[in-house]
Simulated assay, not measured.
Amino acid sequence: MSNDKWNEDTIEKRLRNMPVVKDQRSKDEIMQRLKEDTRLSEPNGPKKRPSKSKWPPIIAAVAAIVLLTIIVPTFIQQNNEVSMDKATTEESADPIVMEDSEEMQSNEASDASVFTKQVSAPLSYAAYPADILDHTAFHIGLATDQAAIVPVTFLIPNERLPEGLGTSPDAVALYNEYANTIDEEALGFSEYHPYKAMISSNGNQVQMKFTADHTYDRSSATLEMLNLSVQNTFQGYDEIQFLQEDATPITFDQVGQVDEPISLSGVASRQAYYRFLKSDGEAVLSTNFGKTSETVEQALHEMKKSPNDIFSTVIPEGIDFTVKEVKGIVNVKFTKVLDLDKMQSEKALQLLDGILLTAASFDKQVEFDQIAQEQWNKFDFTRPLEKPLGANPKYLINE
């Protein structure tokens, strides 16, 4: 029932609003109907009915009006409620859609953020001076499931460096700040960092004070991995000293007490670079377990063949070159004109970056001959190319 309160004024008002019924018949038609009406021809005239007979039609009419006034508003109210419900549903649906859209965008942004933090990399297998114009290079040797150490160069935006690191942080400061933030497994490597040691520096020497529960001397292989890892991590230092927690010389089960510091080769590692396929299917460039060569010519020629089943050559079959050093510049001349556009971009980059990284490990620049293009990608073959600063660049952005 409606909650509206009815009174005589309301009923009278609604009655006045009832439609007016008009008789459209002509006067002649009405007169003719009256003449034909047999009730008018009765001698005594029409019988007079009791007065009460006049009320039922009036009461019925009033009741009908009242009923209409009750039903119509209720019907209108229901319609309004339905319309409001529909509008409410539509209005509430829009925020839900927006929320879902925002959530999807947020998830996409989050995924993109994760991808940017550690996985995304420049289209290159080597980092060059142009890559660190507004970034800082953080070098680190990461372990693989085949006991190999792969050099990786993380590029950190300068504006995201903590104030405490200064504008030009060294390898030790960068390691202590970022080593424990790297998700190595997400990058296709084995969990290895941070070292089970306190890392500090003293002049040009890195000092590692190992915890008592370390396992680096479990075998000769684990010791070799440790050595290769620190060689690829602490660039810019001359040597590293392995110590116990109390700063006394450490004793490794495989080699005994280590009294003398170990030399760090830094960028001048004198090593050839090869292709390594990680467990996640990504190809990276790495040295052959740290194997060194006497000269840059020897290292570049050794690159032409795969050294073992773990590392493979970056020189595609059918491609050959000669090597000659002139005034400190290594000239690499292909025996046939090399058309880089006819190669897969990935293979072409591995070829060029591998040669440049190998020469850089001897502190040498490379000048290429017999390449069809004068410029390709970011390379300008009309002049000696810049030395790479590190291998396998990846962006590292920690929120």
Rank of each mutant, 00 (worst) to 15 (best):
S2N: 11
S2E: 11
N3Q: 11
K5R: 06
K5S: 08
W6L: 15
K13W: 02
R14M: 07
L15Q: 03
L15P: 02
R16D: 03
R16N: 03
M18G: 04
P19R: 14
V21H: 01
K22M: 08
Q24G: 06
Q24K: 04
K27C: 02
D28F: 08
E29G: 02
Q32M: 02
L34M: 13
K35A: 04
K35W: 04
E42Y: 13
N44K: 12
N44Q: 15
G45Y: 00
K48I: 05
K48P: 03
S51I: 14
K52N: 11
K54N: 02
P56I: 12
P57S: 07
I58M: 08
A60D: 15
A60S: 14
A63P: 01
A64G: 13
L68N: 09
T69K: 08
I71Q: 08
I76M: 03
Q78R: 05
N79E: 00
N79R: 01
S83P: 02
T89I: 06
D94Y: 07
M98N: 09
M98T: 14
E108K: 05
E108V: 06
Q118Y: 06
Q118W: 12
S120M: 00
Y125E: 02
A127P: 04
P129Y: 03
T136C: 11
I140Y: 01
P151A: 04
F154N: 10
E163M: 03
G164S: 13
S168N: 07
P169H: 01
A173N: 11
A173M: 09
N176T: 09
E177K: 13
Y178Q: 00
A179R: 00
I182N: 02
E185Y: 01
A186P: 00
A186N: 07
F189H: 09
Y195T: 06
A197P: 08
G203C: 03
N204K: 11
D217K: 04
M225H: 04
L228P: 00
Q235T: 15
L243M: 14
Q244M: 04
E245G: 03
A247S: 15
I250T: 12
T251D: 07
D253E: 12
G256L: 10
P261D: 13
S263L: 04
F276C: 00
S279W: 02
D280T: 06
L285D: 09
L285Q: 11
L285F: 11
T287I: 04
F289N: 15
G290D: 01
T292Y: 13
E294K: 13
Q298I: 14
A299Y: 08
H301L: 07
K305E: 08
P307S: 07
N308P: 07
D320K: 07
F321S: 08
K327I: 03
T335P: 00
T335Y: 04
K336P: 02
L338H: 10
L338Q: 12
L351D: 09
L351E: 09
D353F: 06
I355G: 10
S361A: 09
E367Q: 14
Q370L: 00
I371T: 08
I371V: 15
Q373M: 05
W376F: 13
K378P: 02
K378R: 14
D380M: 08
P384A: 01
L389V: 15
P393H: 08
Y395N: 12
I397K: 12
